[in-house]
């Protein structure tokens, strides 16, 4: 086929660096990375974006995303993003956090950032365990789910119930846009990309705190093939963490419409 008669349907976004990632094969962290990079490319925000990396597998986001990044102490990405945004109100500030970071050690920071209505965008990857340290139980681990630190399955009598971060933050008046999406099939990945775009629109219009929770897989620590982990996510995580819009400020609804 003559190359002149072809169009490029998809190419790697410019906002990703030309390095391969440390993520395990099939890890949907990579999907979240390329969605954020695509949206930043499409909106032309690369020169004015500052990311805040968290601790966990997501820490190396600063090596993979091709724009300015700072690294926060464990769980403190929303606090650092608050400072960055207040010093540089014209910049677009995002945090990229996992569930061990956001829902455990960083719970205070995320709740207060949302309560203050800080004008930042948070991308929250929920894969129901601590991936980087070897698959220990996280606040988001499902009841009965086996992890390296709950070998008989999470017992809610002694270990409590999983935290639904989106529902929790949606109760705060400062939060403008809080939604949960999943990365398990092409349709839901497309919906996730739209939500990421809306989150940036919310920030650009100064409407306040926005968070997109992305259900994600961890094939290595779940001890499954990447394909099976997508099925497990669909069958087990989505019933506990229903997808949907938990908080959409009326002013945000106009952008979406």
């Amino acid at each position: 086929m003559d190359t002149q008669e072809e169009v490029i349907v998809y190419a790697r976004p410019d906002s990703l660096t030309k390095t391969n990632t440390h993520y395990c094969p099939g890890c949907t962290h990579g999907v979240a990375h390329h969605l954020i990079a695509e949206v930043i490319d499409e909106m032309g925000l690369r020169e004015r974006t500052i990311g805040v990396a968290s601790v966990g597998c997501s820490v190396f986001a600063y090596n993979y995303m091709n724009f300015d990044f700072v690294q926060a102490p464990h769980g403190r990405a929303p606090a650092m993003a608050t400072g960055v945004k207040r010093v540089f109100p014209d910049k677009v500030v995002l945090t990229y956090q996992g569930d061990g970071d956001l829902a455990s050690i960083g719970m205070a920071e995320i709740v207060h950032a949302a309560a203050r209505g800080e004008n930042i965008s948070v991308f929250f990857l929920n894969n129901a365990n601590y991936g980087m340290t070897g698959g220990q139980m996280a606040p988001t681990t499902l009841p009965g789910q086996k992890t390296t630190s709950s070998p008989n399955g999470r017992d809610v009598e002694t270990q409590g119930y999983p935290i639904r971060a989106s529902e929790l933050l949606a109760t705060l008046d400062g939060a403008s846009y809080v939604v949960r999406r999943s990365l398990h099939d092409p349709k839901n990945i497309r919906l996730a990309k739209k939500a990421i775009r809306t989150a940036f629109e919310v920030q650009l219009r100064g409407l306040g705190f926005s968070m997109v929770e992305l259900l994600s897989t961890c094939p290595t620590n779940w001890e499954m093939t990447p394909q099976n982990s997508l099925k497990w996510l669909e069958e087990h995580m989505i019933p506990y963490y229903p997808l949907g819009d938990y908080k959409v400020n009326p002013a945000v609804a106009e952008i979406k419409g």
Binding site: T3, E5, E6, V9, Y10, R12, T21, Y23, H29, H34
Partner: peptide, 16 residues
Amino acid sequence: CAIVCPDAAITVYRED
């Protein structure tokens, strides 16, 4: 394939 690829490794071309 490019949408689901976690490593953005795939470039897709289509006949114009």
